[in-house]
Design a protein around this nucleic acid. Structure first.
Lengths: 196, 196
DNA sequence: GAACCACCCTAACACTTGTTAGTTTTCATT
DNA sequence: AATGAAAACTAACAAGTGTTAGGGTGGTTC
């Protein structure tokens, strides 16, 4: 019960996933090999299998952790009794912060999910679809309550989530624009386009 | 000079690139093998090398074709004497239509460029950076001329391009929303958020 | 001190990868 | 019918893939 632990109070499995996430993001799931992962962990490839069952288990862990995180936070917003515009702003900020603070994980969940094996793939896509539906319900309500301009809710959700997912390219850049400027301006842009 | 041609007035090389594009988009560059490509072309893998030099040459052809297309169209807009807002709307529509009509190519150029070998990779990224800079110059001018609201130009460009790139997920969906609705609503959203 | 267990190692597996060599087929032009 | 080039084929290569088997090592617990 002691040896399995490391410096950071995390199990070796968690360490493996963390290191793998970095590589999956940098090179893509397919191009990052188990031997690559093993090297950054400081161990032989075969040894990884004492802690994980397969390469794709790592991907599953990452994708579903992110998905669950988003769903949990969305539920919190849904339960609140803020206006629909406030709700959307909260959600947008939540997404931006997730992208800023958990870049690797969110990026992988956004871009590498197609490598999930069935039935996880279908599962993931269903969760995703239902998540977006719930977001567009908020917008639809906002339109009915005359708090938002009349815009196709599906397109609005698509626009918002895609825009935020593009923060990925900021992360890869030289970051002459600060994180705070990024957040405030993107929120401004996306909320302004929604307002009546 | 005749045998190399096929039904569609295109060389075999172009056919290979087209078929490969489909596979690169579906499975990713790394996961699509030369044997996969050969099969859809209806030939053995080794025979592909009578027409192309390497797998990555296909990727280069796709990425730079798209990049050059975008640059050419941007230059046309820059030369016009429309207002900055009109310019931005034209550019946004151009991007949306490219995404709608040349989905496979644009998607690959957006998502698989990291597999380009040097020096093509650096080249590609430089073109991309300079393209975005020119877009943000238009927005900056719009702000100075008081035609646009005061928003960080870098963030605005990031938001616009990322949003449009998300049309990819519409393409993969059941398309309950039509292409026209998609275009009009996204333009509305993105332009409205820019207007003073 | 013996047994146990978690963990690492080396070696190997079956398979897939992009690509090359060498040969044969196809077909328009002479 | 013969020529010559383009383009297809088979076979093989070296390297890399995820994963398993089996054995060794060092620390914890009886």
């Amino acid at each position: 019960m002691a040896r399995i632990q490391s410096k950071k109070n995390s199990t070796k499995k968690e360490i493996i996933i963390e290191k793998a996430a970095r590589l999956f993001r940098e090179k893509g799931f397919g191009a990052a090999s188990m031997r690559d992962i093993a090297e950054t962990v400081g161990v032989e490839a075969a040894s990884l299998y004492n802690h994980i069952q397969s390469k794709s288990e790592i991907l599953q862990a990452i994708c579903f952790k992110v998905a669950n995180d988003f769903i949990a936070q969305l539920e919190e917003v849904e339960r609140s009794n803020a206006s629909t515009l406030e709700k959307m702003e909260t959600i947008i900020r939540m997404h931006i912060r997730m992208m800023l603070e958990h870049y690797e994980y969110v990026y992988i969940s956004d871009h590498e999910w197609r490598h999930l094996p069935e039935p996880y793939l279908s599962n993931f896509l269903n969760q995703r679809r239902s998540y977006r539906k719930r977001l567009s319900d908020v917008i639809e309500e906002g339109i009915h309550k005359n708090e938002m301009k009349n815009i196709d809710p599906y397109v609005a959700v698509l626009t918002i989530l895609s825009a935020i997912s593009g923060i990925e390219s900021w992360h890869r850049s030289r970051k002459t624009t600060g994180a705070e400027t990024l957040e405030e301006n993107m929120v401004k842009y996306l909320i302004e386009g929604l307002k009546k």
